[in-house]
Amino acid sequence: MTLTFELDPAITPVLREEILTLWADVSNAGGSVGFVAPVTVDEIRPELIKHFVSMAEGRTRLLVGRDGTGTVAATVFLAFNTHRLMLHWLWLYTVMVHPRHQGKGYGRDLLAAAEEAARGLDGIEAIRLTCRGGHGLERFYGSCGYKEVGRVPGAIRVAPGDDRDDIFMLLPLL
């Protein structure tokens, strides 16, 4: 089974709830997407609303991957830069694949679909993302063509005494 990807889907109540559930499930399974377990959809909702506001303002695009049942199984937000000297690259935020789909290659599929979407945007020459150290994510992104271009040691505090590096990754599109 593969995922079916859609860029800029209509934001319906069902989609909103599926993204919230995905985000909570990923976070509660130990995923590094801005929260630390345990977390509820009510705690995540304000962050999702921020993404939706950015989408409404034309600063962010949403890419959704649906499984064979049509359920949201993966998401990523593509965020444009607003600084006039950095308009040639965009950020990937909240890169998520549902835990029940881990190990199926869907993360690679999601990143490939995000790359394809970025290549279709005028003037975009690179994709940047950050990831939390301590999970080996930089190796995964590296295997997908991203290169580590910076690291801030201990920048992310997931718990008292548990600081992680903030790792910057880049994928040139040219």
Rank of each mutant, 00 (worst) to 15 (best):
A118T: 09
F52A: 13
L22F: 07
T75M: 15
Y93R: 10
I19G: 03
D122E: 11
R59F: 11
V41M: 11
G107T: 01
I49T: 13
P46A: 02
H83I: 05
R84H: 02
R45V: 01
A56D: 15
F35N: 02
V95I: 15
P99I: 00
V39N: 04
G70A: 11
F52D: 06
T21N: 02
G70I: 11
H51Y: 06
L111E: 07
A118W: 12
V39T: 10
G68N: 12
E116H: 12
F35V: 04
W23S: 12
A37S: 06
H101I: 01
G68D: 15
Y93F: 13
R100N: 09
A114T: 06
G31I: 13
L129C: 09
A24V: 14
P38W: 06
G34P: 11
I44R: 06
R119H: 12
G103Y: 03
L20I: 02
G65V: 13
T71E: 06
G70Y: 07
F77Y: 15
Q102C: 08
D122Y: 03
L87V: 13
G107E: 05
V36L: 02
R100E: 07
R66F: 11
P99Y: 00
A24T: 09
W23R: 11
E57H: 04
L85N: 11
G31Y: 04
T75R: 09
T75I: 15
L62P: 10
T130K: 03
E115C: 11
L87R: 14
G120N: 07
T60C: 14
L129Y: 12
H51M: 12
A118D: 07
G30P: 12
L121G: 04
L90Y: 08
S32V: 05
L48F: 11
P46R: 01
T130W: 01
P99M: 00
A126L: 06
A74G: 15
E18W: 01
A29Q: 13
V26S: 07
W23A: 05
T69P: 00
F52Y: 06
V97Y: 08
S32K: 15
E115L: 08
L129V: 06
G31M: 09
A113M: 07
G68C: 09
R100G: 00
D67M: 13
D25Q: 13
I19N: 08
G68H: 11
P46N: 00
E47A: 10
P38I: 05
G70T: 07
R128D: 12
G68E: 13
M96L: 10
A29K: 09
V33P: 00
G70F: 00
R84Y: 01
V76I: 03
H83Q: 07
G123K: 14
T40Q: 00
V53L: 11
I124P: 07
Q102N: 12
R59K: 15
V36C: 02
G30K: 00
P38Y: 03
L90E: 05
V53S: 04
V76H: 05
L129G: 08
A24K: 09
Q102M: 03
G103C: 02
E43N: 01
L78R: 09
G34F: 04
T130S: 10
H88D: 14
A113V: 08
T71G: 05
R45S: 07
E115D: 13
I127N: 06
E57P: 03
D42Q: 13
V76M: 02
T94P: 01
D122V: 05
G34T: 01
I49A: 12
W23M: 06
H83S: 01
Y93G: 03
V39I: 08
F80M: 07
L92M: 09
L87K: 15
V36D: 00
